[in-house]
Amino acid sequence: MKKSVFFGALAATTVLAGSAFAGTLDDVKARGELICGANVGLTGFGAPDATGAYKGFDVDLCKAIAAAVLGDAAKVKYVPTTGETRFTALASGEVDVLIRNSTWTYSRDTDLKFDFVAVNYYDGQGFMVKKELGVSSAKELDGATVCIQTGTTTELNLADFFKSNNISYTPVTVGDDSEALRQYDAGACDAYTTDASGLAASRASLANPADHIILPEIISKEPLGPVVRHGDNNWGDIVRWTYYALLEAEEKGITKANIDTVGTSTTDPEVKRLLGLEGDLGAMMGLDKEWAKRAIAASGNYGEIFEANIGTSTPIGLARGLNALWTQGGLQYAPPFR
């Protein structure tokens, strides 16, 4: 009897707890701060700099959301999350949104009860080899030793790729990226495989980047994007459409520099709607008229964010590739703002 009362109370608390998540927008507004689950340190995507300020491609999306919701891009608290703690941090309500290069997969979306609201970076697993090896395709890597981080999906992808191409390899397992880089540099393995974005950063940090090439094969799909909890669709909409606003801004040529003037000079009704000069799109999500304008002004449009953090002008030097706009042969496509 006592036991059932206890479990009843527990269940009731859980129900209460579930309903407490429903109003993430209200929570964020009441708190005056967006809590963003960030990476503990990933080059170009999200890491604190020497002064402790978070910077990076993912971090700029956090800033855009904070600007849209709270009107100030600086009102973000970054909670560093590891690969192990990230999903619990989100599920338990410790963070409002998780923006730390998490791959959108079926089980995470359904079983873990999350919503991947957008894909802000299409990544995939690639290979880096030394030029002197004379290899131009991953299919020529028969018998090669490959450095691979243990306990990641990249390990499984690698096994699948070699099996399906009927070639053999010897894995050299390493703990993390820095160790992999060290082993690869010391010649302990012929090839290093991880996400292509990480490979580019690793290649840039080697003594002679020109001596190494990243092979053209991408052997897996890694769509990375912001994650929110199931059950609060309005909050999911806000994160999704803030991201799309950045995309749309790039497509329409709205930049950080011209955002104050483009509204008056343009004749495009969609730009006017986006900037809050016509209609009232923000109210449909519980925001004000200028939410998207502030989000874009925070760090610029999608293209500007990409170029500033990981683009070809940075040492990391990633090409847009799949992440180009759909008008330029990429996959980044924002639904219409109307």
Partner: peptide, 23 residues
């Protein structure tokens, strides 16, 4: 392991995440 910046792994990861000190 729980995301706190300890000197050995936490801070080292942060330093290595800076492209200037990667490697």
């Amino acid at each position: 392991f729980v995301g706190l910046a300890d000197p050995l792994r936490g801070i080292t990861t942060i330093v290595r995440a800076d492209i200037a000190w990667k490697g």
